[in-house]
Design a protein around this nucleic acid. Structure first.
Lengths: 153, 153
DNA sequence: GAAGTTTAGTTAGCTTAGCTAATCATCAAG
DNA sequence: CTTGATGATTAGCTAAGCTAACTAAACTTC
């Protein structure tokens, strides 16, 4: 392993911070994933549904792009969501090639419940931090959100 | 977007911080995932290989637990890695039921290259932050790593 | 306005990844 | 030496990913 690959525990250089932040995000989500089994929703379906719930109605192509997946894949994913009563689709009257897909109340409810379980667990962990640590996380949030935004480059 | 979906922008309550942190982690990784196509490794394989590279040799059961996957799934995943020359396995001499699986030099190289691409992109983004934002992220790192650790509860 | 081009989605057919159930092999206890 | 427990594999299914090829609708161009 080359020397610069060691994240140098207290490293402040951007490459070190990036390495550690990347790893922390992976492990944080992996840990929270344990809660997902309870929802009955597969990962890809939950993820697609969340785009509909938090982003509002979208076309199939929009969804495919958002999920970084090819149109045929999203086509079947959406078909599954519709069959399960979690989403519904109608033809756009202005351009009858496109579908307007949206979450149903049932879909919204299921997704919110799943997300609530993950967030609840994370909330408990945050409540156990000492005040200084908690403040550090809270203070970094705005920036983390900016880094997470698609146009962050 | 429904009103309750806005996580109360300046929210400092643990539940708000948890919601925003959760969402930021998801979107951050989704954005970095764009870099993964170049590695030629599928997500699950890359993830399993990373456990071997960063955690050292492990048994098949260890890997399955780490990846939150059933043993048969990991069995096939490992078979794929071995066939591709990225990992190798040998029987544990003390208990010949268990396999000791480890990454090969080729596997390590491939994984490091992929991770390097993701980290490089994140590094560029970090370098564009102004000093105060950058400091806030760096200051939160230790705590974020603690939250990400399996035993964080 | 008919012909060609582009764009949105779907269908067909393949591979990979996930699961459960059943099996094999080895180890540990009695 | 049998019995039971444990690590891993095999068999066989469904879901999720892909590419290639297709349909349908909407533009463009003459």
């Amino acid at each position: 392993m080359a020397p610069q690959d060691r994240p140098s525990p207290g490293g402040r250089k951007p490459a070190d911070v990036a390495t550690r932040l990347h790893s922390a995000a992976i492990h944080l989500l992996r840990r929270l994933r344990v809660e997902d089994a309870a929802s009955g929703l597969s990962g890809p379906r939950a993820s697609a549904l969340s785009v509909l719930v938090f982003g509002g109605p979208a076309s199939l192509g929009d969804l495919a792009r958002a999920e970084q997946v090819r149109p045929p894949t999203m086509s079947r994913l959406v078909a599954g969501l519709i069959k399960a009563g979690l989403a519904e689709a109608e033809r756009d009257p202005d351009d009858r090639r496109v579908q307007r897909i949206r979450a149903t109340a049932k879909g919204r409810g299921l997704l919110e419940a799943g997300r609530a379980r993950r967030v609840k667990r994370l909330t408990r962990d945050l409540e156990r931090l000492d005040p200084a640590e908690y403040a550090a996380v809270a203070a970094a949030l705005d920036t983390l959100e900016r880094l997470a935004r698609p146009a962050a480059s």
